[in-house]
Amino acid sequence: MSVADESYDFTTADFNAVYTGGDLLPGAAIKGVPWDIGEPQPDVVAMEDAGRFDGAVLDIGCGPGDNAAFLAGRGHRVTAVDAASAAIEQAKERARGLQISFAVADATRLDGYEGHFDSVLDSALFHTLGAEDRSRYVAAVHRATRPGARLSMLCFADVPGGMPAPLSVSEEEVRTTLHEAGWHVTHLSLSVYAGVAGPVKEFFEKTGKRPELDEQGRTRLPVWKVFADRVSA
Rank of each mutant, 00 (worst) to 15 (best):
E180Q: 14
S168T: 07
E173V: 08
F126P: 13
L129T: 02
D133K: 15
T176R: 15
A157E: 01
M153G: 06
C155R: 08
D158E: 14
E132I: 02
R150Q: 09
S152G: 00
A144L: 06
A139M: 01
R175Q: 09
T176P: 03
T177Q: 10
A144R: 14
F126R: 14
L151S: 08
R175T: 10
G130Q: 10
L154R: 14
H179A: 13
L178P: 13
E171P: 13
A181L: 03
E173I: 06
L151N: 08
P166R: 10
R146K: 14
A131S: 14
E172R: 14
V138H: 06
R136L: 00
A131V: 14
R146M: 01
G161C: 10
V174P: 10
F156N: 07
D133F: 00
T128H: 14
L178G: 06
A140S: 13
G161W: 08
V138T: 15
P160C: 11
Y137S: 08
G130N: 13
R175E: 04
R136Q: 00
L154P: 03
C155A: 15
R143N: 07
V174H: 14
V169F: 08
G148M: 06
L154A: 05
E180F: 04
P164K: 06
V141K: 03
E132N: 09
L167A: 14
V141N: 02
V159K: 12
E171N: 03
L154V: 03
T145V: 04
F156L: 14
H127F: 09
R146G: 00
F126V: 02
A157V: 07
D158W: 05
S152A: 06
A140E: 02
S135C: 02
L178H: 07
L125M: 05
L154T: 02
S152R: 00
P147V: 03
L125Q: 05
L167P: 09
E180N: 14
F126Y: 15
E173Y: 05
E173K: 08
G161F: 08
F126Q: 10
A157K: 12
A140W: 04
L178D: 03
A181D: 01
E132R: 12
V174R: 13
C155E: 04
A144V: 10
T176Y: 02
R146T: 09
L125S: 02
D133Q: 15
L125Y: 06
V169W: 09
R150M: 00
M153W: 10
C155N: 15
A157N: 07
V174S: 05
G130V: 03
M153Q: 15
Y137L: 03
P147G: 04
P164T: 07
L154Y: 11
A157S: 10
A131H: 15
D133A: 13
G161E: 07
T145F: 03
V159Q: 10
T176S: 13
E171H: 15
R150E: 04
E132C: 00
A149W: 10
H179V: 01
S135H: 13
A139K: 15
P166V: 02
C155S: 15
G148R: 13
T145L: 05
P160M: 11
M163R: 15
G148F: 04
G148N: 08
G130H: 12
V159E: 06
A157C: 06
V159G: 11
G161T: 12
G162R: 11
E132W: 01
S152K: 00
T128F: 04
A181R: 05
R134W: 06
G161H: 12
A181K: 03
T177K: 12
P160R: 14
H142A: 11
M153E: 02
H179E: 12
S168G: 07
T145Q: 06
